[in-house]
């Protein structure tokens, strides 16, 4: 299987910022515990936020950093709002431009897909859905998927369960049973400050770290 670099910069794809990880290389170099030679979990974030920086990626980066402390990972990101006309003009998979095809392929081939979205008008943004409308019907079958969402208040927290999880149920993906949500008030700008949310991420990821380790192929 081809290895996707963590620093791929095709359209709409950027390296995930990892401010708390020492050094600039992949986290496997600095992770404290993993077995030498164990495979890396190839994580692809599909980011449904139009903002840059965003609270959605603020929370997601906490998730990725916490995960990287538990097992070797290699992360990349697809920003659906940056994919451009090759994405927005396409009504079917065969109409997308090569860079968009590459982003879709990368998501389909991930060991762990992190689906991250803000709440817009009561659900995930249409652009986020459009990305998954272009994903092959069976490409995510049995794929480990972790759900992450942010919203304007705690009232939106069930977007994870009532909007996002059913989308991946269609794909017969293996959404892990933990999912992470934070409200605007938990952030100073896009920096997550609420220690309760940090604690929740830590606890939730511990629950599924063993399963995720078994999915690592990188």
């Amino acid at each position: 299987m081809t290895t996707t670099s963590a620093t791929t910069t095709s359209a709409g794809a950027t390296a995930v910022p990892r401010p708390t990880t020492a050094g600039g290389a992949s986290s496997a170099d600095t992770a404290p515990t993993p077995d030498p030679g164990s495979a890396r979990l190839r994580v692809v974030v599909v980011n449904g936020s139009p903002s840059r920086p965003s609270k959605t990626m603020g929370l997601t980066s906490v998730v990725l950093d916490t995960l990287a402390e538990m097992l070797p990972t290699e992360a990349s990101q697809v920003d659906v709002y940056r994919l451009g006309h090759g994405f927005t003009d396409a009504t079917s998979r065969d109409e997308v431009t090569p860079d968009v095809e590459s982003a879709l392929h990368r998501a389909e081939e991930a060991d762990l897909l992190v689906a991250a979205a803000p709440v817009f008008r009561g659900s995930y943004p249409g652009m986020f859905k459009h990305f998954f409308d272009l994903v092959d019907q069976y490409a995510l079958a049995n794929k480990a998927v972790l759900l992450v969402a942010t919203g304007g208040s705690d009232r939106h927290a069930l977007v994870l369960e009532h909007a996002m999880r059913p989308l991946f149920a269609f794909f017969q993906a293996m959404t892990v049973p933990v999912a992470f949500y934070a409200s605007s008030g938990d952030f100073d700008g896009t920096l997550l400050l609420n220690p309760r949310v940090y604690g929740r991420v830590q606890m939730g990821l511990q629950d599924v770290a063993g399963l995720l380790r078994s999915r690592a192929t990188g």
Binding site: S184, G185, D186, F187, D188, L192, L193, N194, P195, R196
Partner: peptide, 9 residues
Amino acid sequence: GGSPASAVS
């Protein structure tokens, strides 16, 4: 006003 982040900062 009551947002967790304000209290923390």
